[in-house]
Amino acid sequence: SQVHIGNTTFTFDNPEKAQKYAEKYAKKKGLTVQKNGDVWTVE
């Protein structure tokens, strides 16, 4: 599972961890999370 934030990609061994990280980061920065398969993009 991966989380894309700008030009940075974070890889997680667990989809739940990836989703939590993406949502927490997005909330903190006032951004949105797009999910595509097991990839979350914060923008």
Rank of each mutant, 00 (worst) to 15 (best):
K29Y: 15
T11I: 15
K20S: 12
K17E: 15
K27H: 10
K35C: 10
T32R: 09
I5G: 00
K17S: 14
K24D: 15
W40D: 01
A22K: 02
G37P: 01
G37L: 05
D13T: 11
K24G: 13
N14C: 14
A26K: 02
H4P: 03
Y25L: 13
G30M: 00
Q34S: 14
G6H: 10
V42Y: 04
F10M: 10
T11W: 15
A22T: 02
T8C: 15
F12N: 02
K17N: 11
N7C: 12
L31V: 07
E16T: 09
T11L: 14
Q19N: 05
E16G: 08
W40L: 05
K35L: 14
T9N: 06
Q2V: 14
V42I: 12
N7H: 12
V3R: 00
K29R: 11
W40E: 01
Q19S: 06
K35I: 06
D13F: 10
V33L: 09
T41V: 13
T9V: 15
T8I: 15
Q34N: 13
K28W: 11
S1C: 14
V39D: 11
S1N: 10
V42G: 00
Q19M: 10
Y21F: 15
E43T: 14
A22D: 01
K28Y: 10
T8Y: 15
Q34D: 03
F10N: 02
K29P: 05
G30H: 05
K35R: 14
K29F: 15
T8A: 12
A26H: 01
D13K: 10
V3C: 03
A22N: 00
N7G: 12
T8V: 14
V33P: 04
I5D: 02
Q2W: 11
S1K: 07
G6T: 05
D13H: 07
T9I: 15
G6Q: 07
I5M: 04
V39H: 13
G37E: 06
V3M: 03
F10K: 07
V42H: 01
N14A: 09
H4R: 15
T11K: 11
K20F: 10
V3S: 04
A18E: 00
K35H: 09
G37T: 02
F12Y: 02
A26F: 04
G37W: 03
T32S: 08
E43F: 13
L31N: 03
E43D: 12
P15F: 05
F10R: 06
D38S: 09
T11P: 04
L31H: 06
A22H: 00
A26W: 02
H4M: 13
A22E: 00
N14R: 05
K35Q: 09
S1R: 07
Q34W: 10
Q34Y: 13
K28P: 03
G37R: 03
H4I: 15
K29L: 13
V33E: 01
T32W: 02
K24T: 14
T41R: 08
E16S: 09
S1V: 14
D13V: 09
Y25A: 07
V3Q: 01
T8G: 05
G30Q: 03
T32N: 11
E16N: 08
Q2K: 13
T41A: 04
P15Y: 07
Y21L: 08
K24I: 11
V3Y: 00
F12P: 01
Q19K: 13
S1F: 15
K24P: 00
N7S: 12
T41N: 07
K17Y: 10
K29M: 13
G30R: 02
Q19A: 12
E16H: 09
E16A: 12
T8Q: 14
Q34E: 07
F10I: 14
A26M: 02
Y21V: 06
T32K: 11
A18D: 00
Q2C: 14
F10A: 03
V39F: 09
K20L: 13
F12T: 04
T11N: 11
E23G: 00
D13Q: 11
Q19T: 02
T11E: 10
S1H: 14
L31Q: 03
I5T: 03
W40T: 03
K29V: 07
H4A: 10
K20A: 13
T41H: 10
V3D: 00
V3W: 01
K28M: 10
K27D: 07
T9C: 15
T8F: 14
D38P: 06
N14I: 08
N7Y: 13
V33S: 02
I5P: 00
A26Y: 03
G30E: 03
F12C: 06
I5E: 00
Q19P: 02
K17V: 12
G37M: 01
G6R: 07
Y25F: 11
